Amino acid sequence: MRITTNAILRNYRSNLGTSMANLDTARNKVMTGRQFVSSAENPGSALRAATLERKYVKNLDYISTAQNTQSFLDSQEDAAMQISDLALTLSKQYGLEALNGTNADAETRKTYADAWRGAQESLLLSLNASYEGRYAFGGADAATPPFSLTTDANGKQILTYRGVNVDPDPNDPDYQKTMDTLKQLSEESVYLDLGFGLTVNDKTGEIDPSSAFNTSLPGINVAGYGKTADGTTKNMVLLAGQIADTLEKEPFDQAELEKLLNAFDDGRNNVLEQVTTLGTKSQFLTATKDRLETDKLNLTTQLDNVVNIDMADAITQYSWAQYAYNAALKVGTSIFSPSFIDFMK
């Protein structure tokens, strides 16, 4: 088999080009820290990396949402605790002391009445508490103050929740309609996707409650709405005003005050139940954040394995590629070995 000089040169140039390409690839890996720069270099790994990166970004969004939601829940819990603490002071201090026979004179009762009216304003402020422009107890509408307290022409206080009277008159023709509206408002939900596999019913368009996190706490679930069986309002804000009126009224009706105080105590117990519910939701949210942080760590590890290089191995490969390239250059100097032409004269 005859091997020509041109054949040797062609093979040499081809092999030298391969050595240069290998050296460039090894150099790029060391400089970028990545196993590949373009998807063409490793289509399989590039596809997996793109999938992992989407999951990673979505997970970061879940974590951010969970953190913001936790802050919002904290604002709800703080406001509910303020209402509970104030209600405890009103019930166990001002209420019991006003019922005490030694404090039954009109002047003393007037002082307690003023305290109840001041507390009524504080309750209203807590129910309209907001966090970063969102009202904590606004239900599905967190953009406007949920509660508004006014007085009608007869001097009767009227409290509305998102424009609906929370203590409608049973004699009103629209009483049942108003109560149905209040019930709907009390059941409102605001769902957030926190990575539970958000599911929406194709027919009804409703979100599956088990696939999302509900951040809504309608204020009427905290303060109460409607009336008891004996016709007493269940709303704590209105009760505070009625207790103040009873303390100022002459002759003093102790039985009426006791009835109102018992209703107020029931309302305070309801607030404590809401605080407990918020605490449970907060614990669940904390566990969710921990899970998301774990997912973030796992995704980071997987991305690192797919995209990034082992620097020690990359430097070793680069050194070997550099050695092979230098060797190829040295081989080039000996390609033109002496031929018959060199000995002709």
Rank of each mutant, 00 (worst) to 15 (best):
T151L: 02
L247F: 08
A21W: 03
G332S: 11
G219W: 01
K227P: 00
T5C: 00
V164H: 02
G332Q: 10
N262H: 06
N100W: 02
D295H: 12
I243F: 07
V57H: 05
S210T: 08
A312W: 02
Y112L: 05
D290L: 11
F343M: 09
S71D: 06
N128M: 04
K345M: 03
G332P: 01
K296D: 11
T232Y: 06
L124I: 06
L329T: 09
T316H: 00
S148I: 08
A244T: 08
N298A: 13
D290W: 10
K289A: 11
T51A: 10
F147P: 06
N59T: 15
A66D: 08
L47S: 14
S19M: 10
N154M: 13
Q176A: 10
I220L: 10
K29Q: 15
L9H: 12
Q70V: 03
L303Y: 05
G195H: 13
D208K: 08
E258I: 08
W116P: 01
N201S: 03
L238I: 15
L90T: 00
Y325H: 14
P170C: 06
L185F: 06
Y62I: 09
L292P: 01
I335Q: 05
A129T: 15
F340N: 04
D266E: 08
A212H: 01
A327E: 01
Q176M: 05
D141S: 04
N221P: 00
G163D: 00
G231C: 00
D202E: 15
M311P: 00
L192N: 05
F213C: 03
